[in-house]
């Protein structure tokens, strides 16, 4: 039933934190080589969805299929070995490790050696200069670049990015998105959570809007207007 070019397919996902239900029957699919923007208000379940795809959160029902096989119950290290890497919200670098050590840890369960250190440093020259520094001494933009580098070190086929522009200066965000478009032209599949709707729609082919844990809108960016997305974002037009 799933088409051959579908890399990730999520079906009827319910996710709970204790008694609190964060996702209600969420389904979406991501085609190989596509970029999908995940938008929605705070608390809509975007981070939960990414963490569930990465294996940090277990769904109470529903399926996650990746590359044609069911990975719903697979632990994070298995998913990384199959090519799913997450850049977590808030960067979450290991503060006492150096920049280079952070990246090396990311390569610990690597799916493929397509991102050796040298290629990472060529892609992010600003962190190459800081490779021996502790991650906690870097600026926000540099830390975000290291967080992306750490995920790339795992050689992912599917890269999940959670609010990489959070708290960063626009010029820094611009640089990060340029890097992402470079990754896209190299064939990476991306799912990214982004608060800035314009940026999300510029950077992605598809868009999924979550509203209170449910999919309010799923469409190709070319097929929707900004107003339609905003309406889905705020739940306007619901009966």
């Amino acid at each position: 039933m799933s088409e051959p070019d579908v890399l990730l397919e999520i079906t009827d996902l319910d996710v709970f934190y204790g008694d609190f239900q964060a996702l209600f029957g969420v389904s979406m699919s991501v085609a190989r080589g596509c970029a999908t923007a995940l938008v929605g208000a705070n608390g809509a379940g975007k981070t939960t969805l990414l963490r569930t795809i990465a294996g940090a959160q277990a769904p109470s029902s529903g399926f996650v299929r990746y590359g044609g096989s069911d990975i719903t119950a697979a632990p994070p290290h298995r998913r990384i070995a199959r090519g799913i890497a997450l850049v977590p919200e808030g960067r979450k670098l290991f503060p006492s490790l150096t920049v280079e050590e952070n990246i090396q840890v990311g390569a610990a369960a690597a799916a493929s050696p397509q991102w050796p250190l040298q290629r990472i440093y060529d892609t992010f020259p600003m962190i190459a200069r800081r490779r021996r520094q502790r991650a906690s001494t870097l600026s926000g933009g540099e830390q975000q670049a290291v967080a992306i580098a750490r995920a790339l070190a795992a050689g992912p086929s599917l890269l999940l990015l959670d609010e990489i522009s959070l708290g960063l200066a626009p010029v820094v965000v611009e640089g990060l998105y340029e890097t992402l478009s470079g990754l896209r032209s190299a064939g990476a599949t991306l799912v990214l959570v982004e608060q800035d709707l314009r940026r999300a729609m510029d950077a992605c082919d598809n868009l999924v809007c979550l509203l209170e844990g449910r999919v309010a809108l799923a469409a190709a960016v070319a097929d929707v207007t900004r107003d339609q997305v905003v309406a889905a974002y705020f739940g306007e037009g619901r009966s």
């Binding site: 990465a54 294996g55 940090a56 632990p75 994070p76 290290h77 990384i80 070995a81 890497a85 997450l86 977590p88 979450k92 290991f94 503060p95 006492s96 490790l97 050590e101 952070n102 090396q104 840890v105 990311g106 610990a108 369960a109 690597a110 750490r150 995920a151 795992a154």
Partner: peptide, 23 residues
């Protein structure tokens, strides 16, 4: 060592360590 790096990363933040693939 690679083992030591993983140990220090896990000591820093066990949840993120799991997320980046450390067993």
């Amino acid at each position: 060592t690679s083992w030591g790096r993983k140990v220090r990363a896990t000591a820093d933040d066990v949840d993120t360590a799991r997320l980046v693939g450390i067993r």
